[in-house]
Design a binder for these strands. Structure first.
Lengths: 164, 164
DNA sequence: TATTGTTATACTCTATAACTATA
DNA sequence: TATAGTTATAGAGTATAACAATA
């Protein structure tokens, strides 16, 4: 199983980094934007823990995203040590575009499965992931992922993801 | 989905490296032993491609495994440039032990799923992996993985994997 | 004292380049 | 000329350590 897992993961990273070309930080930057948009993070440390990366690496990634004008570090009124990561307007536009591109990349990755199988795979993968980390914020993130993929299964009215 | 995939993959690598403690090369060394035992590889380059690692890295990993007396580099009679990777007797014993330990680690990783769900997850994961690489030897490896997990589902007579 | 975030440093890992030997 | 394997080197990526600010 480890072999298949590695193959799929490498395939995902490769496809995701290709799709996220131009975004400083590659597929991990997308996950930062995605998590920050759901305002789950609260702080850089929480965000880093959620994505499984070191807090120092998070600093570098955020530096690049701030430099690109996609996110801002806002002071947390409740804890002046902490910084809240929030998307700029440009960051939200970028994320909407990335959401659609990543959705298509994932569809391509799972192309060998039919629709119910894809649904089952996503569901099982999320269940395993939720178990691997037995943490609350993690489960929330997984639910959100599920929700996004469910939303994407509905008929689309335009080329880009729905945004007011 | 990328998030869940990363979480599960990291969880697997962490568990696998812990289980493979003492084996030089960690979980990747196990995959080398496993592939070599099925004599799929033929050569170091083919093995490296199968596992998705560079041929130079394969040299280092094999150096350690040879140093530990687990594998041998045998000259290929058909192509004197190539080396066939074969397990020593000690390597086969080690692999049998590792197979059992990895099987338990995977069970623990998928503990949140019931038996049919685990079966479905492995099957779907293999199908996706087979699609990601559209290569023949890859499909073979996946079948073998499936076979091993199927065999492991049969009632066990002892604590260790069946070995004559 | 513990934690957040930053910076600088050191380390690990991986890939690149150059080489030998075969084909 | 192209490929298999090895080696040495350089590069990317990551973690460690030290620091300031705050809890």
């Amino acid at each position: 199983m480890g072999w298949a897992l590695a193959v799929v993961f490498r395939g995902y990273v490769k496809a995701a980094d290709a799709v996220a070309e131009g975004l400083p930080g590659g597929h991990r930057a997308y996950q930062i934007l995605s998590a920050a948009a759901r305002d789950e993070p609260g702080s850089q440390a929480a965000l880093a823990h959620l994505l499984g990366i070191d807090r120092t690496v998070m600093t570098y990634l955020l530096d690049d995203l701030v430099g690109a004008g996609l996110v801002e570090r806002q002071p947390d009124p409740d804890d002046r040590r902490s910084r809240r990561v929030v998307l700029t307007a440009r960051g939200r536009d970028m994320l909407a575009d990335l959401d659609e591109r990543f959705r298509r990349a994932e569809m391509h990755l799972l192309a060998s499965l039919d629709d119910p199988e894809q649904q089952a795979f996503r569901s099982l993968l999320c269940a395993v992931a939720a178990h691997v980390n037995d943490l609350d914020p993690v489960a929330t993130a997984c639910d959100a992922v599920q929700e996004i993929s469910r939303r994407a299964d509905q008929p689309r009215s335009g080329t880009a993801a729905a945004r007011p």
